[in-house]
Design a protein around this nucleic acid. Structure first.
Length: 888
DNA sequence: GGCGTCACG
DNA sequence: ACGTACGTGACGCCG
């Protein structure tokens, strides 16, 4: 039974703002037939449904800001002075939000001269005094100052559909302050987003420390004499007035002269007719559907399907005209070995299903699948291609892949469940696999075959229905070429590489295993002796206790859960404690043993003695591939012990060789290209050692001869930093220098490479303006956090804006190279086979007699993949095993 | 299932 | 002032 004294107060502006950016990536999808943007309204509505259901309030109010001028701007001119203007796509939605609320039977309210916060503060106070339970919903942490025993402040996290509940206890846990003291903290630390100053050089941390000692701003100033002389004390004295002003500005009023009272806020419930009109105007079909039949909100209309029989196959296939949807179901993730569950084929809402995949081998069906002229719509073409290949069948003619297209439209939505992806595109008539098959150990085919068939038919229908709008979005984004000419054909190339697999010699791995095992045993004994007891060295917890409690070694770094025992820490302990050095050696060897020796032996396919990885083509946010089960993109190379693992990677035939080629400095070349920086371009055009060249410039040297190895090392770190979206802190950590020194390097770098600096600034500006960044080939990545008030989130987004076009364009380039490479191998009728891709490197196997050809062909194809303003450089080499490939 | 650690580009 | 370098996957431990 719902409480009859439960008040829900919503901070309209801040939640609308969060709602807007939560669906910012879909801003082009959420436009109604009148051209009005609707993303914020849509997300706000979703939030509203959730909070009404969660809190079951008896009274509700949504408070809005009345305008820019308030009593706060009267006290302080520049209050919120640095705020970006509200985007017009959002401000056009705000009036319509009031219409939505009216239809929901919810009161909207604003008050001249006051902010929404003050309305909320005043009503929360009044209601609590009258014995109400109060829940506040806001996107703004500042409101947590209102938390009391009766008042909970729920702050939106990750979009608007999740709330973090701030009770006084939760505030204490997070900040070690009472809600009241949040105001004092703001007084001292100021607030950049509201643009008031606080005390110079005092931030949250310092403020909290002071408040724990003196309780309040007033307390601090009454006890100033207790503070030892310091810069901070001087600042406190100097900025006294500002501190009290800032505290005043931060204080949410609880006595605003409201013209409404609690009695006006009784929640009446929705006016279904009004809502229907509103949703119709907004083109919110999914909400309309829910209105139509709220009781069966989750129930999906059953889709018709027919069981396919061998006798029907030829006639049914012959009856199709135009694109046909095909979907092959395998439940397990690893499709190289997964059992087949069934398939569905059809078009225009007519679906044919079967669990008998042998039907696919009928001549008519095999021909149909292999016909490049017969357009097919699928979900995950690579998976489908590999599955069919296992049945001895070929797939061609794919024109649409829901998974790939959805990924290109937004690579942040990296899931691979058809149902979930369909939902992202506002299509809800298909269940998720988890709903139908369950998850984890319980994942299994449904007992009732009809349930499976229904699910397959729903999937096929979803693919068919979503194809037109998604293809249209690709075109709007200028991504149709990226899909048709790059990702779609690449999926086939990747499938062929996975199917080819790479041969691994178990005998070599077993030899390594013995060698490693002996050395691990010796080290284990030695470590036990040094610790004077036996313990699990693999347990960071136990190791930490031994090193830092029993042996009393200095604690260098802590993690969330205890002492850090990471490489950097142990390296520093080496000089004082030999055990640290032994633990490092032990770690190195056990890593190799478990992940690589044992790990790889486990995944050698018993039939062909090869390892077949799976590339994830739709996972990374930048456009790179990833490799799983096993990961063949992180086979050790840097240290000799690990590198020997590569001796087990051998060609499939005696007398063949492994051949590999890699792009040299592709990311810096991409940067030189997109920034048009003449100095960086010159270094590449002259064929210089790029790190030495950077060293010369940032250290102001006259000749390459003056570059010491240490200078080159530091310059190399700067170059890496530049590509990652540089920060003085990151660089200082990496080089073990001060932030100041790191900043000096960065300044010097930007002085020498002015257009790189310009690029970094421009790309962040562009990300803010458009909400996304792009690669050379129009791959997109949305960066919603670029607008965040949270420094960390925003900084992360800014670095991502700088890095993604670089890393992503490099990924595009090698993808083009792979497409052209596969064609070239065919055209030259070579037996050579492309096996692996490791981000900037391609690995092949080939008869020894073809190596000379590859040495010409591979670099030439990789070089020609793209024409940049700087030359490409490709290194290559070959040998009897992967280990023996030394590139030059 | 989250965390710490460490392998790769 | 804040506290991280960008992108990944697999392993063992621990609750």
């Amino acid at each position: 039974m719902a409480d009859d004294k439960h008040l829900l107060l919503i901070d309209g502006n801040s939640v609308a703002f969060r709602a807007f950016f939560a669906l910012h990536s879909q801003i082009n999808t959420f436009v109604n037939h009148n051209g009005l943007h609707t993303n914020a309204i849509y997300a706000f509505n979703t939030m509203l449904d959730i909070v009404l259901k969660t809190f079951e309030p008896s009274h509700v109010l949504v408070a809005f800001d009345a305008g820019k001028t308030t009593f706060r701007t009267a006290k302080f001119d520049d209050y919120k002075g640095q705020r970006d203007k509200t985007p017009s796509e959002l401000s056009e939605q705000l009036p319509r939000l009031r219409d939505l609320l009216a239809a929901y039977g919810i009161c909207s309210y604003e008050l001249v001269n006051y902010e929404a916060d003050d309305i909320i503060g005043t009503l929360a106070q009044e209601a609590a005094a009258k014995g109400f339970t109060v829940d506040i919903v806001t996107g703004d942490r500042d409101l947590t100052q209102l938390a009391t025993a009766a008042v909970t402040v729920n702050v939106t996290v990750k979009g608007v559909n999740q709330l973090e509940a701030y009770t006084p206890a939760h505030v204490a846990e997070k900040l070690e302050l009472t809600p009241q003291q949040i105001i004092d903290m703001k007084g001292l630390a100021g607030d950049t987003s509201d643009n008031y100053p606080g005390v110079t050089k005092v931030g949250e941390k310092t403020a909290i420390k002071l408040l724990k000692q003196f309780d309040s701003v007033e307390g601090i100033y009454e006890n100033l004499d207790q503070l030892k002389p310091s810069k901070m004390k001087e600042h406190l004295i100097e900025d006294r007035e500002q501190a009290f002003l800032s505290k005043d500005l931060a204080t949410i009023r609880q006595d605003a002269p409201l013209t409404i009272g609690l009695a006006d806020l009784v929640y009446q419930g929705r006016d279904v007719a009004a809502l229907r009109d509103f949703y119709t105007e907004m083109d919110f079909n999914s909400f309309l559907n829910k209105l139509a039949d709220p009781a069966t909100e989750k129930a999906r209309a059953a889709i018709e399907f027919q069981s396919l029989t061998a006798a029907d196959v030829p006639a049914i296939l012959a009856s199709f005209t135009g694109p046909v949807t095909f979907y092959l179901e395998m439940l397990a993730t690893n499709y190289h070995t997964a059992p087949f569950a069934g398939f569905v084929i059809g078009q225009k809402g007519q679906w044919y299903v079967s669990t008998d995949v042998d039907l696919l081998k009928l001549p008519a069906f095999a021909k149909f699948l292999a016909d490049p002229q017969q357009a097919k719509l699928v979900f995950d073409v690579k998976r489908t291609y590999v599955g069919l290949d296992r049945l001895g069948l070929t797939l061609a003619g794919t024109s649409f892949d829901l998974l790939l297209v959805s990924y290109l439209l937004n690579p942040n939505d990296s899931g691979n469940d058809l149902g979930k992806i369909a939902q992202l595109h506002q299509y809800r008539e298909v269940a998720t696999d988890e709903e139908v098959y369950g998850k984890g150990a319980k994942r299994a085919l449904p007992e009732d075959l009809q349930v499976l068939f229904q699910h397959l038919a729903q999937k096929a229908q979803a693919i068919e229905q979503l194809q037109p709008q998604l293809d249209q979005q690709l075109e709007e984004n200028e991504q149709d070429g990226l899909f048709t000419e790059m990702e779609l054909p690449l999926a086939i190339v990747l499938a062929q590489m996975e199917i080819a697999g790479i041969r691994v010699d178990p005998a070599r791995l077993n030899t390594l295993r013995k060698n490693f095992a002996e050395r691990i045993a010796t080290l284990t004994k030695k470590i036990y002796a040094e610790a004077d007891e036996e313990f699990n060295i693999n347990s960071s917890k136990q190791l930490g206790e031994i090193l830092f409690e029993k042996m009393n070694l200095p604690v260098i770094k802590k993690t969330k859960t205890g002492y850090s025992t990471a490489v950097g820490v142990l390296e520093q302990l080496k000089s004082v404690a030999p055990i640290a050095s032994d633990v490092l050696d032990y770690r190195g060897l056990t890593k190799l043993q478990s992940t690589y020796v044992d790990g790889l032996l486990k995944v050698i396919h018993p039939d062909d003695g090869k390892i077949h990885t799976t590339y994830l083509q739709t996972l990374t946010a930048t456009g790179r591939l990833s490799s799983i089960d096993p990961n063949l993109q992180n086979i050790p190379v840097r240290d000799e012990d690990g590198r020997q693992i590569r001796q087990a990677f051998v060609p499939r035939e005696a007398g063949w060789q492994i051949f590999a080629a890699d792009y040299s400095q592709i990311e810096l070349r991409v940067l030189a290209h997109i920034s048009h920086d003449k100095n960086l371009q010159a270094a590449f055009s002259e064929g210089a050692d790029i790190h030495a060249s950077t060293a010369m410039r940032i250290f102001g040297l006259a000749s390459a001869a003056e570059v010491t190895p240490n200078m080159r090392r530091q310059a190399k770190a700067v170059n890496f930093g530049i590509v990652y979206g540089i920060s003085d802190y990151g660089l200082s950590q990496n080089l073990g220098i001060t932030r100041k020194q790191a900043q000096a390097y960065i300044d010097s770098y930007f002085h020498e490479y002015p257009n790189v600096k310009q690029y970094m600034e421009d790309i962040v500006t562009a990300a803010k303006k458009y909400g996304y960044v792009e690669t050379l080939f129009h791959r997109r990545r949305y960066l919603p956090d670029i607008h965040s008030k949270n420094f960390n989130l925003r900084s992360f987004a800014e670095r991502t804006a700088m890095n993604t076009p670089i890393q992503g364009s490099a990924a595009d380039i090698i993808k083009v190279a792979m497409l052209n490479m596969q064609k070239a191998l065919q055209a030259h009728e070579l037996q050579a086979t492309m096996l692996l891709q490791v981000h900037d490197e391609l690995i092949f196997e080939a008869p020894a007699a073809e190596i000379a050809t590859l040495e010409q062909l591979v670099p030439q194809v990789m070089d020609a993949a793209v024409k940049l303003e700087v030359p490409m450089k490709v290194g290559y080499g070959s040998g009897p095993t992967w280990y023996d490939v030394k590139k030059g």
